[in-house]
Amino acid sequence: MIEVQHVKMVYPNGVGALNDISVSIEQSEFVFIVGASGAGKSTLIRLIGREFLPSSGSIRVFGKEITRLRRREVSMFRRSIGVVFQDFRLLDNHSIFDNVAFAMQVVGATPREVRRRVPESLEMVGLTGKAKMKPHELSGGEQQRVCLARAIINQPSLIIADEPTGNLDPKTSMEIMELLRTINIRGTTVMMATHDSEIVNKMKQRVIRLADGKIERDEQRGVYSHYAH
């Protein structure tokens, strides 16, 4: 599903983030990208979300070389993936319902579809009854659930998440992880950057560890670190 080949990323300010990364991710996998701050986790996630282009190398997602997409194709590609942000990125002046519906409106869904699917999605993330509330009326964990509901509303085959639990307490973080795992079990590939060792160790999923822009370790049912904490 995702084929990253010899990807290098040097930012315009000269800072090198990734150095010859190659990795392959299959359909329905749950993959953690771990590493210290500045290791290149977020850069890799953002490259796969086609937020920007690598300095060199190839990135194929769903069989398509996303580094060569035209502007129009980039929009179409983004519709096929769900994105979860650390800072939620919800529209504060919109209700929870509207925030989730927004993702459907963007792709031109009919109002009837919106009315049917948004409550389903909110139910899945456990936010039934909070549809009319505004994001600032919710806790961090609940806001991240809204972000998840928005990410899955268009039924993407891939979800990329950049530190989705970075702003949450351990208990809430685990709830979000359980949700992501449920989404994953239903067949959606999940790729998540994190530096939360507890979560990674508990989930026992594939772990790709980055260090200084290179893959240091890639293990199935891996742990955050082999060194004792």
């Binding site: 129009r72 179409m76 519709r79 927004f102 963007v106």
Partner: peptide, 16 residues
């Protein structure tokens, strides 16, 4: 601006 950024991530076309 924030809304535009989110729209781009959600796959809104430039024309939209």
């Amino acid at each position: 601006l924030e809304e535009i950024g989110i729209m781009k991530y959600l796959g809104a076309s430039d024309w939209y």
